[in-house]
Amino acid sequence: MAGESTRRNQNFYCQYHQDHGHTTENCRNLWNYLDQLVREGKLRHLLHHPSGHQGQAHQEPPRDIALRPPVGMINVILAALGRTGICPSRVLSVAQWPAKESQPKSKRAKMNFHPILSFSEEDKIGTIQPHDDVLLITLRIGDYDVKKVMVDGGSGAEVMYPNLYKGLRLKPEDLMPYNSPLMSFGGKLVIPKGMIRLPIQTGPEIMEVNFIVADTYSPYTAIIGRPWLHTLGAVASSLHQKVKLPSGDQVLEIRGCQSTARQSAEEAKCEDLEEVVIGGDPEKFFRVGAQLPLQEKEELIEFLKRNIDVFARDAYDAPGIDLAFICHHLNVNPSITPKK
């Protein structure tokens, strides 16, 4: 939003920009973004097509859209500081695809019936107990089924990482600015690359969510937090490895993958490495643990400097060694002509 914030009208607030100066309804950037989504056909299910005859039903979107196969599958905990409790700033809209069969129900039944979300011992069937595994699920983000999405009820923001951003075929210019830093598990501040709004489909529910793109290592592809859970009215249980959410008069379940969670936990144990250049050539470096205590790191670097002459990066760094030691041969008969 251009201009100094002190000169804007403080009586008007825009949830899209999260700033004062104009109302959300009069936000030109928001209307331009919605127009773009309409042109791309992403809001077809929300459009109403008026007809010339009163009472004539408008044309419904094809019912098989929600069941279309994904474009592909992507296999690749943070909390935002500030602005973490405002769902409208991260959730633009929630839409629902038309059900396969519509059965008439009384208004009273619709108003009074609320599915109960609960977990019992039966929900533990198929899981390894006891455990302390995180909850990893597969979600349809955009046009792709994305694996290794962590559900974290303690996170006040949805986060995605660069590998997933590239896997979704998104471009750097698609990012919106986002300046609030994030805090990693290691206690480091991470400056986000930006923010992007993408649709998440859960059963018949389609929800637009703001993802903060963090340029840091993570064993997960993305993190889904409270804004997504609360907007859908969903409840997650890592103990039962499930997410339950209401959908009409039914309860939908998303089952987590416990084996993937354990594999990701092992990956997370791998320590971050940093490059240490010893000598004048920046292309010749060693990788040491970034979390090593300072004294141990200095002793290790000093040891490498004293013994730099014993390290060989290619055959030319080790003259005098018999070629039979460093060369290998294929176990084939030279008298036989190779065939394709």
Rank of each mutant, 00 (worst) to 15 (best):
A2P: 11
A2I: 11
A2Y: 08
G3N: 11
S5Y: 06
R7F: 08
Y13N: 04
H17M: 05
D19R: 13
G21N: 05
N26I: 00
N26R: 07
N29L: 11
Q36R: 12
Q36W: 04
V38F: 03
E40K: 14
E40I: 03
G41I: 04
K42Q: 13
K42I: 01
L46K: 10
L46R: 14
L47P: 03
H48P: 00
P50R: 06
G52N: 11
H53M: 09
Q54D: 09
Q56A: 11
P61L: 03
P61Y: 05
G72C: 14
M73W: 13
N75L: 10
N75Y: 14
V76T: 15
I77Q: 07
A80Q: 08
L81G: 08
T84C: 07
I86V: 14
P88Q: 11
S89Y: 09
V91Q: 07
L92W: 09
L92P: 04
W97A: 12
E101A: 12
Q103E: 09
K107S: 14
M111D: 12
H114C: 08
P115A: 07
L117M: 05
L117V: 14
E121R: 09
E121M: 05
K124G: 02
L135N: 07
I137D: 01
L139A: 11
R140P: 02
G142A: 04
Y144N: 06
D145S: 09
D145Y: 13
G153M: 10
G154R: 02
L170D: 01
D174V: 02
P181H: 09
P181V: 14
S184K: 01
L189A: 05
P192K: 05
R197A: 06
L198H: 04
P199V: 05
I200K: 02
P204A: 10
P204W: 07
V209I: 15
F211L: 10
A214N: 01
D215L: 00
Y217P: 00
S218N: 09
T221Q: 14
I223P: 00
I223M: 08
I223E: 01
I223F: 03
I224N: 04
G225E: 05
R226K: 15
W228R: 02
G233W: 08
A234M: 06
S237T: 03
S237G: 06
S238V: 01
Q241G: 10
K242D: 01
P246E: 03
S247K: 07
D249I: 08
D249R: 10
I254C: 06
I254P: 00
R255K: 11
C257E: 13
Q258A: 09
S259P: 00
S264F: 01
A268K: 10
E274Q: 14
V277Q: 01
I278S: 04
I278Y: 05
G279F: 08
G280Q: 13
D281V: 12
D281A: 08
E283P: 00
R287H: 04
V288P: 01
V288Q: 02
Q291R: 14
L294N: 05
K297T: 06
E298I: 08
E299L: 13
E302H: 11
F303A: 15
L304Y: 08
I308N: 12
I308E: 12
F311A: 03
A312E: 03
A312D: 04
A312H: 15
R313D: 04
D314V: 02
D314C: 14
A315W: 08
G320P: 03
I321P: 05
I321F: 13
L330Y: 13
S335K: 13
I336R: 13
I336G: 01
T337M: 11
T337L: 10
K339A: 06
K340E: 13
K340T: 07
K340H: 09
